[in-house]
Amino acid sequence: MRIELALFASLEPYLPEGESASGRRTRMIDLPGGITVGEVVARLGLPDQPRVCFIDGRGVREDAVLTDGVRLAIFPPVAGG
């Protein structure tokens, strides 16, 4: 299956090579069906620290299972206001 991956702020350097999707900080990536967010995190080698993950704009835990065509966005801990 194919999904859109977006990595922001300090996670941007972990973006894999590949075709950009809807912006500079996104890639289209191919993944096996049934893979979880946590397994994608491990594949990307993201640092071992808290993260905030979204699938199609909904906050998810890392055991959430990805499906074809979704957008996965991952942020390091950020805040402001």
């Binding site: 702020a9 300090s10 942020f75 950020v78 805040a79 402001g80 206001g81």
Partner: peptide
């Protein structure tokens, strides 16, 4: 880390 590196506008994307 987040605030000193990017400032408050780090929120825009999230």
């Amino acid at each position: 880390q987040g605030l000193p590196t990017y400032g408050t506008n780090v929120l825009a994307n999230i």
